[in-house]
């Protein structure tokens, strides 16, 4: 065997898989590490040479009230969106899984909000939740409730933004869950029926446990997405183009604050520190969610 073909056998496989790793290194790993590097400098967009400051950006961040406000906002919006979203998505999937006329039409139907432009949705929802002339308040008044200032009230603004997020993502998640449901063998359901289990019992004891891997996936992806909500709060602000997230940052998310620090304030180092803290928060919460989902779904029924 010639030396050339020995090399071929030994190194060619690496060459074949190289594109992924090169791309990942270029657009995944490098930005990640470079952000960490930038976060240790006082790095101004137009301010000349960056100065090394070590952990100062992180220390400043932890004593920055606005950071804690935005972190709380992010978690609040995340809980208000991801929680209901996954519950509704599973129920919706169960509905879609039953015998419907024109199943494809329904499935495409639930995906429509996802196809629509995010910016258009943002503008429409900001209109619906307008404090003075919005439809939401008119409806509230119609049923005899008080008007809500969706812009000024912190919790109300989070609810409004969460509605926007849920509107867009529930259908998408429902389809993923639906695919998993259809992969569950019919025999198991038949066996359960023979054992005397009704539809609810079958859903709880058969379907849910078998959905576990998919639910873990859905929970993790919506955690990652939910903690990085950006466009919705940006467009929700009454002041066009503003990154403030409301008059007192009442619905500014952490990504929005990061964006404001970097591109409005020009503080690239500080923004990079925010980015890294957000990265760690996402990993931490995703891990916790992973563990919880695994336990919950494993807790009942079939093993």
């Amino acid at each position: 065997m010639s030396r050339l073909s020995r090399w071929d056998v030994k190194y060619s496989p690496y060459l074949y898989i190289a594109p992924f790793f090169v791309l990942f290194g270029l657009v995944g790993l490098f930005p990640l590490l470079y952000t960490a590097y930038v976060s240790m400098f006082d790095w101004d967009l137009l301010g000349g040479d960056p100065v090394f400051v070590g952990a100062d950006n992180y220390l400043a961040l932890f004593s920055d009230n606005q950071f804690w406000t935005t972190l709380t906002n992010t978690l609040s919006i995340f809980v208000l969106s991801s929680g209901p979203q996954i519950v509704i998505a599973v129920l919706l999937a169960a509905l879609l899984n039953s015998r419907l006329r024109a199943p494809t039409a329904w499935r495409v139907g639930v995906l429509l909000p996802y196809v629509a432009s995010l910016v258009a949705l943002g503008i429409i929802f900001a209109n619906l939740f307008g404090p003075n002339y919005g439809l939401a308040n008119n409806l509230l008044e119609l049923v005899g409730l008080d008007r809500v200032d969706w812009q000024a009230d912190r919790f109300a603004s989070h609810v409004a933004i969460a509605v926007m997020v849920n509107w867009r993502w529930t259908g998408y998640n429902a389809l993923i869950v639906l695919a998993a449901m259809q992969a569950i063998p019919k025999e198991i359901h038949e066996a359960a029926t023979v054992d005397g289990a009704g539809p609810v019992r079958r859903f709880v004891s058969v379907t849910l446990p078998l959905l576990r891997p998919t639910l873990v996936f859905v929970v993790i992806t919506s955690t990652i997405g939910g903690l990085q909500i950006f466009t919705e709060p940006k467009l929700f602000d009454a002041m066009p183009g503003s990154n403030n997230g409301g008059s007192s940052n009442q619905f500014q998310t952490i990504t929005l604050y990061m964006y404001q620090s970097a591109f409005e304030g020009g503080h690239l180092g500080y923004a990079s520190a925010i980015a890294w803290v957000l990265f760690l928060v996402v990993i931490a919460i995703a891990t916790v969610n992973f563990l919880i989902t695994r336990r919950l779904a494993a807790g009942s029924g079939v093993r």
Binding site: Y133, G134, A238, M239
Partner: peptide, 18 residues
């Protein structure tokens, strides 16, 4: 009138004479 300049509600405010 508490309408943020250039917001949707501000635009509506012109129409309704707010």
């Amino acid at each position: 009138a508490k309408l943020v300049a250039f917001s949707n509600e501000w635009n509506s405010g012109f129409k309704s004479g707010a």
